[in-house]
């Protein structure tokens, strides 16, 4: 599931990643933009997703991602999702973001391939169907 929190309108990256992941064979829920961290967490729980991808190009990633982490924890789903963030994120913020509980940080310039690989490594492959 991928989404934008807050009011930031830069959604080019979000769309590219959504399509890239879909083309790589994943089921993508495009939750959209202008969402609160609580709304994202509730959707993650309801849809029982494996990955929560957040895109932030507003510079508010530190504040907003710690709220996303907390919202996921409050609903008890933090442990079972892979939480990633992408956007304009200075190098100095990468470590602190990981410390707050973000599993993957993908700054501007990351390839779709890198993200697909990260998701595949972090999410167990689904059981084969009947």
């Amino acid at each position: 599931m991928i989404a934008k929190v807050g009011l930031d309108g830069h959604d080019r990256g979000l769309k590219i990643i959504a399509r890239g992941l879909r083309d790589a064979g994943m089921e993508v829920i495009y939750l959209g933009m202008r969402l609160t961290p609580d709304a994202v967490a509730a959707a993650a729980q309801e849809e029982d997703v494996d990955v929560v991808g957040i895109s932030i190009l507003s510079g508010a990633h530190m504040r907003l991602m710690s709220r996303v982490v907390k919202a996921l924890e409050d609903l008890g789903v933090k442990e079972r999702v892979l939480l990633v963030v992408g956007g304009t994120i200075p190098d100095a913020d990468v470590g602190p973001l990981q410390e707050t509980g973000v599993d993957g940080v993908f700054p501007v310039g990351t390839t779709i391939g890198d993200i697909v690989e990260f998701v595949r490594a972090g999410v167990p492959a689904p059981e084969p169907g009947p």
Partner: peptide, 21 residues
């Protein structure tokens, strides 16, 4: 972004973006 989207700085969605971009 809060100003661009027509919300005041104390709106729920503005948190963290006031004066940012």
């Amino acid at each position: 972004h809060p100003t661009l989207t027509g919300y005041d700085s104390d709106h729920e969605l503005a948190d963290g973006e006031v004066g940012r971009l």
